[in-house]
């Protein structure tokens, strides 16, 4: 399964599958930035890692 590294502009990072990082980004966005992060917005901050 493809793994991704997601990096928020604030420096916070998450790694994992697409579902993992999108879920983590939604929680981070809501709890730290008071933002609703869409699936597309989360993936726009992600890059695939070497498998």
């Amino acid at each position: 399964m493809q793994e991704y590294l997601l990096t928020c502009a604030c420096g916070w990072e998450a790694t994992g599958s697409e579902n993992d990082i999108v879920s983590a980004a939604k929680v981070h966005g809501r709890e730290i930035h008071n933002m609703d992060v869409s699936h597309e917005e989360a993936m726009a901050m992600a890059a695939p890692t070497a498998s």
């Binding site: 928020c8 604030c10 420096g11 916070w12 709890e31 730290i32 008071n34 933002m35």
Partner: peptide
């Protein structure tokens, strides 16, 4: 967000102070 300014969004109709304190 580490040793840096931490940015928080206010939604429409949200009081900035209440939002800041809650987050």
């Amino acid at each position: 967000c580490g040793a840096a300014p931490w940015l928080i969004e206010t939604g429409e109709g949200e009081h900035p102070l209440e939002t800041a304190v809650r987050i």
